[in-house]
Amino acid sequence: MQTSASPVSRTLANVFLIGAVLVALLPLGLVALNAFKPHTAIVANPLSLPESLSLDNFVRAWNGGKFSIGIVNSLLLSGTTTLITLACASLAAFALARRKIPGWQLITIYFLCATTVPIQLFLFPLYFVYAKLGIVGNFAATALILAAINLPISIFLLRAYVLSIPQDVDDAAFMDGANPFQTFLHVILPLMRPGLITVAIIVFLNSWNEFLITSTFQKGRSNITMTLGYLSMNGTYATDQGALMAGAFILVAPIIVFFLLLQRFFISGMTSGAVKG
């Protein structure tokens, strides 16, 4: 369809889109290019091609960014956050979609308000309570915070999936003698699997990338995540841009692969709340 666009506007449109692609990719291209160059070559010309594919920069970046500590903490933190969020959100989404409990409207509105609540509104007292309890730096305790932040949006995403499962399905399970928890576990959960995968991917990525909570609560050499370890290189490695770019490569490349493989889920998850259709 739409053959009426003139060649001129068609060309302008292509120029715009290709320009946008270049702007989106330029910084990432520079990372890939300069991750293999020594500092002096980068300072001389950040656009020049690397002369060799030496991995020296990557070794210095891996050690400088303390990535062997960070990767373990990042996986633990993001994995725990994802599990807590999935467990709490799927149960709540089921109950809220079925509207059997008194006050379900109120609870729904509470979670709706919670989707946009500023982190700063609860961060400061929470930090000092955590400090008093001695759980600052504990990945499971930090995961609880990240889960609480991701909970509302996850509930609404999953609620939409439950709403698409007819009530008759519950009733049939009830007739077969299943209690509501068995119905949830054996009937509802398998039917909402695409939703669970979408939520898991989005929550995992959110917590992997998260900065404000993570940098506040995961302080200390042994608690840092990959992003925090990399951030600690920023000032100290100003005169070793090769290592800095290699560090960025290490940080960014797995996420890009992860995203490209699972982009369908990302896009459906990100747009489902914002687009009514």
């Binding site: 946008a20 692609v21 989106a24 990719l25 910084p27 990432l28 520079l30 990372v31 990525l205 992997w208 990338n209 900065f211 992003t227 925090l228 990399y230 951030l231 290189m233 920023n234 800095l244 770019m245 960025a248 940080l251 960014v252 996420i255 890009i256 995203f259 490209l260 982009q263 990302f266 896009i267």
Partner: peptide, 17 residues
């Protein structure tokens, strides 16, 4: 997908880059 790439990367990485 290309336009979305910067959005899925960590702010720490983007800022330092």
């Amino acid at each position: 997908v290309i336009f979305l790439l910067p959005y899925v990367l960590a702010p720490v990485a983007n800022a330092v880059i």
